[in-house]
Amino acid sequence: MIYGIGNDICDIRRIRASLDRHGERFAARILCEAELTVWRARSQRWPERGVRYLATRFSAKEAFSKAIGLGMVMPMTWRACEIVNLPSGQPAVRLHGPLAQWFGERGLRCHISLSDESDYAASFCVVEKMNEIGL
């Protein structure tokens, strides 16, 4: 059963402007430690790729927060929600701390899709409530 659906579109130019104004402090506010490591590596090799990485993560976390119905209100925080790539390349959500507990207590699971093109990053998220037989 669908628990919630969220989508988000993010203007990459806005993310770039925030990075220009606030530097790494802005990225550190949005990304957890593992994501920051990836962002730094991508930014070092090709700065534009780092901006796109940050924009897709920003968009995905926004879409996720909408799908669970919390927005950016505790236990949902930027850094408690990590966007990872499975070995297949498929994006997935990994949760930490109180948000992971909140999500687990409700028997939820998440599907997320991200995309970026020129000036925009977009994400779509579906959160399901698993039934008693494990869906």
Results as ranks from 00 to 15, higher is better:
residue 1 M to F: 09
residue 2 I to V: 09
residue 2 I to A: 04
residue 2 I to L: 06
residue 3 Y to M: 03
residue 4 G to I: 04
residue 5 I to H: 08
residue 5 I to M: 07
residue 6 G to K: 04
residue 7 N to T: 15
residue 8 D to R: 10
residue 11 D to V: 10
residue 11 D to E: 04
residue 12 I to D: 02
residue 13 R to V: 08
residue 13 R to E: 04
residue 16 R to N: 08
residue 17 A to S: 15
residue 18 S to Q: 09
residue 20 D to P: 09
residue 23 G to M: 03
residue 24 E to I: 10
residue 29 R to C: 11
residue 30 I to S: 07
residue 32 C to V: 09
residue 33 E to W: 13
residue 34 A to C: 09
residue 36 L to M: 10
residue 38 V to K: 12
residue 39 W to N: 05
residue 41 A to Y: 01
residue 42 R to Y: 07
residue 42 R to P: 06
residue 43 S to P: 08
residue 44 Q to A: 09
residue 50 G to P: 07
residue 51 V to D: 06
residue 57 R to T: 00
residue 57 R to P: 06
residue 61 K to Y: 05
residue 63 A to K: 12
residue 68 I to F: 06
residue 68 I to D: 11
residue 72 M to L: 11
residue 74 M to Q: 14
residue 74 M to P: 15
residue 75 P to W: 05
residue 79 R to E: 12
residue 82 E to F: 09
residue 86 L to F: 12
residue 88 S to Y: 03
residue 89 G to P: 02
residue 90 Q to H: 07
residue 91 P to Y: 11
residue 92 A to K: 08
residue 92 A to D: 15
residue 93 V to I: 15
residue 95 L to H: 07
residue 96 H to I: 00
residue 96 H to V: 11
residue 98 P to F: 01
residue 99 L to G: 03
residue 101 Q to E: 15
residue 101 Q to H: 04
residue 102 W to K: 10
residue 103 F to I: 07
residue 106 R to A: 12
residue 107 G to L: 01
residue 107 G to V: 11
residue 108 L to A: 00
residue 109 R to Y: 12
residue 113 S to P: 10
residue 114 L to R: 09
residue 115 S to C: 04
residue 116 D to E: 03
residue 118 S to L: 13
residue 119 D to F: 06
residue 124 F to K: 01
residue 131 N to T: 09
residue 131 N to V: 14
residue 133 I to M: 04
residue 134 G to M: 04
residue 135 L to Q: 13
